[in-house]
Amino acid sequence: QWIQSKREDIVNQMTEACLNQSLDALLSRDLIMKEDYELVSTKPTRTSKVRQLLDTTDIQGEEFAKVIVQKLKDNKQMGLQ
């Protein structure tokens, strides 16, 4: 999976804004449970939030991952090649 192969780059480069947009999009599509949303959003640092989101992606699967990839594209953060 692309996200896993780029995990380190995503953790380093995903902005707080992109992270929040991803969470909002996942929530609005019922792809993330409120508990998982809280787990991510209550982490103390941006990098720990991104790591938690990516860990959740492993469990949730492809549809979940597609939303995150789309948000990275929207925010022009796909220089993660």
Rank of each mutant, 00 (worst) to 15 (best):
V50G: 03
S22W: 02
L27T: 08
L53E: 05
E62I: 00
T42C: 12
Q60I: 09
R51S: 11
K66Q: 12
Q52P: 05
K34T: 05
I32G: 02
N20P: 01
L27Y: 13
N20D: 08
I68F: 00
V69A: 07
I10N: 06
A25C: 13
M33T: 15
M33V: 12
S48W: 01
D74C: 10
T42G: 13
Q60H: 11
N75Q: 13
C18F: 07
D36V: 04
T47D: 11
Q21R: 09
N20A: 13
Q60T: 07
R7F: 13
K43D: 00
K73S: 14
Q1R: 07
V67L: 05
T57A: 14
P44E: 12
V69S: 04
Q13P: 01
L53G: 07
D58M: 13
D36S: 05
E16G: 01
L39D: 11
L26D: 01
N20F: 14
R29S: 09
F64N: 03
D30Y: 01
V40R: 01
R7I: 01
R51M: 08
E35V: 07
L53M: 05
S5T: 08
Q4T: 15
V40L: 02
K76M: 15
S28Q: 14
T56H: 10
V69M: 14
L54G: 05
R51H: 05
L31F: 02
R51A: 12
D55M: 13
V50R: 01
S48G: 12
K49W: 02
F64Y: 06
I68L: 07
L27D: 11
K49E: 04
R51G: 07
I32L: 13
I3D: 13
V67Q: 04
Q21D: 15
S28R: 12
F64S: 10
K71P: 05
D55P: 03
K49V: 02
R29C: 07
V40F: 06
E8K: 08
R46Y: 01
N75I: 07
L26Y: 01
L23A: 07
D9C: 08
Q52L: 04
L54A: 08
T42K: 10
D24C: 08
S5H: 01
L19K: 01
A25Y: 02
R29L: 14
R7V: 04
K76A: 14
S22V: 15
L72R: 03
L31D: 06
E62L: 01
A25S: 10
T56D: 01
R29V: 03
D30N: 07
T42R: 14
T47Q: 12
R7P: 00
E16N: 10
G79V: 11
E35I: 00
V40W: 00
E16W: 07
K34G: 08
D58V: 14
D55F: 02
M33P: 13
V67P: 04
L72A: 01
E38A: 12
S5W: 03
L26G: 04
L39T: 11
V11P: 05
L54K: 07
E8D: 14
I32Q: 09
T47S: 13
A17F: 01
S5L: 10
K71Q: 12
Q21H: 04
I59T: 10
R7G: 04
V67D: 06
F64P: 10
D36E: 12
D58A: 14
D24M: 02
E38C: 02
T47W: 08
A65T: 01
D24N: 03
S48M: 12
C18S: 10
T42Q: 15
K66S: 13
D36P: 06
E62H: 03
D58E: 15
T45R: 01
S41P: 04
A65M: 00
S5R: 12
L26A: 08
N75E: 14
T56W: 15
K66R: 11
N20T: 09
Q60W: 02
N75T: 10
L54E: 09
T57R: 09
V67R: 01
D55Y: 06
R29W: 04
T47C: 10
V67C: 08
A25T: 11
R29H: 08
V69R: 09
I68Y: 04
S41Q: 15
T57D: 09
V50F: 00
S5A: 12
T42E: 11
E35N: 05
T56I: 15
L27M: 15
V11C: 09
S28A: 14
V50H: 02
I32Y: 00
S22A: 14
L72M: 15
M78I: 08
Q21N: 08
I10T: 02
Q70H: 08
E35G: 10
L27F: 08
C18Q: 08
K49C: 01
I32A: 02
I59V: 11
T57W: 02
S48Q: 15
T45I: 01
L72P: 05
W2E: 06
K49T: 02
L39E: 14
D55Q: 09
T45P: 04
V40C: 09
L19W: 00
T47V: 11
R29G: 10
T56L: 15
I68Q: 05
D9H: 08
G79R: 09
T56V: 15
L39R: 14
K73I: 10
A25L: 09
M33S: 15
